[in-house]
C-alpha cells in the first residue's frame, strides 16, 4: 500500500526472484495490478504489467506507471484521486505442481511530480483512504487521541491541500508579460506627446 497525492505520477516496480529452476515444471505468468482507495483497478499507462517467465528464468521485472493523480474527478470517472493505492502481485498461469513454492519479491514505488498540466479545480474533502470519516468524527477521534485513518495513511509531509500548481506561475507571468507588451505597444505609437515648452493650462 502506498499513498499518492495530487499531481504525482506513481511508478510501481516489482522484482520477483522465482523459485529454484530445478523445482519448477514449466513457464509461469506473473502480473501486478494497482487498485485505488475504492478498490477500483487502475490502468497502467506504460510498463510491462504481466510477464511470462520460462522454466529457467531466475527473476523477472514488472512495472506499472499510473496516470497522474488529480485533485478531483467526476463520480462516474475512474481517474486516480489522492488516497491509498494497493499493489497486488499474482501468478496467473503456471503448472499446478509449482503451487506453494517459495519466492521473494521486492516491490517499490517511485513518484514523479507532474504538477500543473493535470491540476483540476475542486478538491475532495478527504482522500480516498478506506476508513475515512466525516470531519466531525475525525475531530472526535483526534480529541480522543486516536489517529484517524486518513492521517495514518498520509505520505511523509501530510496530504497537500492542492491550492498550489504551476498554473499560478504561468498566469502571473502571462499577466506581467502582457503588461510589458502593452507598455511597449503604447510607447511605439504614442508619438511625441504634449510639447514641454507649452505651459500648463493652455
Amino acid at each position: 500500500m502506498f499513498p499518492a497525492d495530487t499531481g504525482e505520477r506513481p511508478t510501481v516496480k516489482a522484482g520477483i526472484t522465482l523459485p529454484d529452476p530445478s523445482l519448477r515444471h514449466g513457464p509461469a505468468t506473473w502480473r501486478i495490478d494497482v487498485y485505488d482507495g475504492l478498490r477500483r483497478r487502475q490502468p497502467c499507462m506504460y510498463g510491462m504489467q504481466s510477464r511470462t517467465a520460462a522454466k529457467e528464468t531466475a527473476s523477472i521485472e514488472l512495472a506499472c506507471v499510473l496516470r497522474p493523480v488529480r485533485a478531483s474527478a467526476d463520480a462516474w470517472a475512474n481517474d486516480p484521486l489522492p488516497g491509498s493505492y494497493y499493489v497486488r502481485l499474482t501468478r496467473t498461469g503456471g503448472p499446478d505442481e509449482d503451487l506453494g513454492q517459495p519466492f521473494t519479491a521486492r516491490i517499490g514505488v517511485d513518484v514523479s511530480d507532474k504538477g500543473g498540466a493535470y491540476a483540476t479545480d475542486g478538491a475532495l474533502a478527504a482522500p480516498l483512504v478506506p476508513g475515512a470519516t466525516t470531519a466531525d468524527r475525525a475531530k472526535a477521534d483526534e480529541d480522543a487521541g486516536r489517529k484517524t485513518a486518513v492521517e495514518a495513511a498520509a505520505p511523509e509531509d501530510g496530504w497537500s491541500s492542492g491550492w498550489w500548481s504551476d498554473r499560478w506561475v504561468w498566469t502571473l507571468a502571462g499577466g506581467v508579460l502582457a503588461a510589458l507588451a502593452g507598455i511597449g505597444g503604447y510607447v511605439l505609437t504614442r508619438g511625441a506627446g504634449r510639447p514641454s515648452r507649452v505651459p500648463p493650462g493652455v
Binding site: 508579460l177 502593452g182 507598455i183 505597444g185 503604447y186 505609437t189
Partner: peptide, 9 residues
C-alpha cells in the same frame, strides 16, 4: 497586451 498598448498609444 501589445494590441491594447498600440491602441492606447
Amino acid at each position: 497586451g501589445f494590441l491594447a498598448g498600440l491602441l492606447w498609444g
